[in-house]
Design a protein around this nucleic acid. Structure first.
Lengths: 237, 237, 237, 237
DNA sequence: TATGAATGAGCGTTCATTCAT
DNA sequence: CATGAATGAACGCTCATTCAT
């Protein structure tokens, strides 16, 4: 699925990899960038260092990326693409599931994606400063927004007065909480606990703001106090 | 109020401001740093530029900060101190209030603090990369943790099986969501909507995970399904 | 006397020398540039090499010149200024002299200026490629044009139907012939011979194209065949 | 026609073009060089760019020219060869003509050659810096010297006390004036005017320095004052 | 033989830091 | 103490040249 906002031309690799060799080189460069990012941070990352680590010459690197920024841009693009794909996969898989399971799956997917190679995640969080990444983040956000909104719309047990806002909030919360947890460098166990709590929080939220669906007529007549407040909140905006 | 983790000695201003003059100079430097950060970003921020903007010479700046990092460190320290103070103020003010109001006040305080001068907030978010900020963030987090935990413990209408984890999750969620919202550059109105929804979410979460307090015996006998799940979740960890 | 076309701001030294020290540094840099130019030519002239030779650091050089081009620009500007001044001096001195002496003095001045430090002259001829020197040359040319035209206009023994064109041609011839002679690397003696011949040529030319002045009525009635052709030539243009 | 001074071996094309294919390639490379020179100037001219423009690979280019310098050398060689040929043609054609016509034809030929493709001329003037062109220029100069000297010697209406010096001066003047005119970027019309004036100047010069030939005994007895001066000038050298 | 990806020395330029004034 | 000119290591990037294919 293509991104909505085409990335500025000059931030794209100069040559598209056509042969296996080029792809391997590209991979090596990306991996080297991450490794250098982890090892010395974005400030002391130099093109020479990356090239060395990737086992290519600077010149070669510059055949793939017209400048340093382009490297960071491509790296983030690639990473966000993969991430978006995983989220989209989950969304597809959970079409029609009960809302609670959707939320759980969503958090689990995102959490896993960020946690599998935590140093990489951290490195990328840090690399972002080098970048005019507005467009990239936007594109990613929109892409995920759409996927999750579609999923939620398919829930049999819930509809929403303002799905758009609910969706936005939910994603901001998931993405942000994961980042915060990361930045606090929680020990494994505590991390897991937070993850579970995050699921609880998101489920509670969705329960609170959902409208009773056609399939659960009973609830419509006795909205919980929390629901009332939430609806009022949205209504007032 | 001193921080728990003493900052590495070399990251502290060389001279403690004793005179009004020195304080004024320090303020000017900090403000200049922020302005330059906003204007050109952390990569093109140079010590010379900051000094110029602050109306002092580089040499003078180096009397206050032994190197660039120290400047960023002190800037963030100062900012986080102020932020922590505001949160602590709110916590003190909400001692003994119902849990829902506590949450609402907490979100509102943090949101305001971040939103009042959004460019400054953004600038600081960006400046962080220059920094080995682990210690700083830790200290800030711990300080806020303690304040909010104390506040929640004083709630007349709720107790928690694992206040520590709940507190951690709540803060991660608030801090993270605000940051996410920031990074998406939401228009004013949508931002407000998300803020309200964040309150809803946090209240729903606290409602879900709270144990019925001694003062509300009734609830203890009919826990909601959500509460059951949440408690189970904590229990399993 | 200021130049007509102000040089592009970015091609001017960053800091105007205010103290003796700065002036000395500037001189050292200019001299070093010339020496390096002579030693290795414009292609292998590097900012580092110039700085080294000037006994300053690159950084210092960049305080005076924002980039390499600016250095070349300033060097040529300075040289052309001095050259123009000398020519203007001669023109002032020869006001009212007979046309033949004017021409002789003009050639002598220009020739001397170029010949005194021949390697410098050659170095500067070569440095020009690095430069968008159109403006500089124009300014110089205009300045000299004006000075010589004024001088010729004051000649008691000649007036010209189209002084503008005559002047232009004469200067092109002098400047060009000197350059050509230079490029052929003539031995001292032969160079001197060419110089004398150049004077002869220019005098012959002026004799040919001059109109008899009021003070020499006789000539008016018997124009030489050469004069006729020349006048026709101008007339036809 | 071979040059007098053999060019340094390493500055010569590696392969002498024997087949039509090779010649076409060479032509393409030369033309491409000129185009690139015009488009971006000698400093930003790269071998890759030239090869691209010529429609060959860099590798191929390096088969014809062992390095960049050799390319420039060959380009100038070719250009100067053609130019010399044209001048020689004119000289042959004007054998035995009156001196005035010789001069006129000579200027006209040279002027045309330089003016026909002015951007090319300018590009080549600029390319010269890349080159240790002393040998090339020398060879060209000597070749033209010989041709014109021979022509002038055949003039029926003039002989010269020091043909060598007169010839040298005349050529320096023509070549130099044309170059100067070029560098001042004169508008078409003014250019034409200068050209005509240059002819006038050169004719006047030759008239002044010529000795009356055997065929015009009368003149010998009444040398004009200008002639006297000129002869004295030569004599003194 | 032609190709063009790869190389890496070397360039122009920046900027944190020092220290003579 | 304050100043800001001077320093020079280090960076991003280019491009002549090579050589495996």
């Amino acid at each position: 699925m293509p991104m909505e906002t085409a990335p500025p031309r000059h931030l794209t690799p100069r040559r598209r990899p056509r042969q296996a060799r080029a792809t391997a080189t590209l991979d090596a460069i990306f991996e080297a960038t991450i490794q250098v990012l982890i090892a010395v941070g974005p400030n002391r990352l130099t093109t020479t260092r990356v090239a060395e680590r990737a086992g290519v010459s600077v010149g070669t690197m510059y055949q793939y990326f017209p400048h340093k920024q382009a490297l960071f841009y491509a790296l983030n693009e690639r990473y966000l693409d993969a991430l978006a794909e995983r989220v989209e996969g989950t969304c597809r898989a959970m079409q029609g599931a009960p809302i609670g399971q959707m939320v759980e799956a969503l958090v689990a997917t995102y959490w896993s994606a960020k946690t599998e190679r935590p140093e990489v995640t951290r490195a990328l969080y840090r690399s972002v400063v080098e970048l005019d990444n507005g467009a990239l983040i936007d594109a990613f956000a929109r892409r995920v927004d759409r996927a999750t909104a579609e999923m939620f719309a398919s829930a049999p047990d819930a509809t929403f007065a303002d799905l758009q806002t609910v969706n936005l909030t939910l994603l901001a919360s998931i993405f942000g909480t994961v980042r915060s947890a990361f930045e606090r460098n929680l020990p494994e166990l505590q991390g897991e606990a937070v993850k579970r709590q995050l699921i609880t929080m998101c489920r509670a939220y969705m329960e609170t703001v959902k409208l009773p669906s056609h399939e659960s007529e009973a609830a419509k007549k006795n909205p919980s106090p929390g629901q009332e407040a939430a609806l009022a909140g949205i209504g007032k905006s």
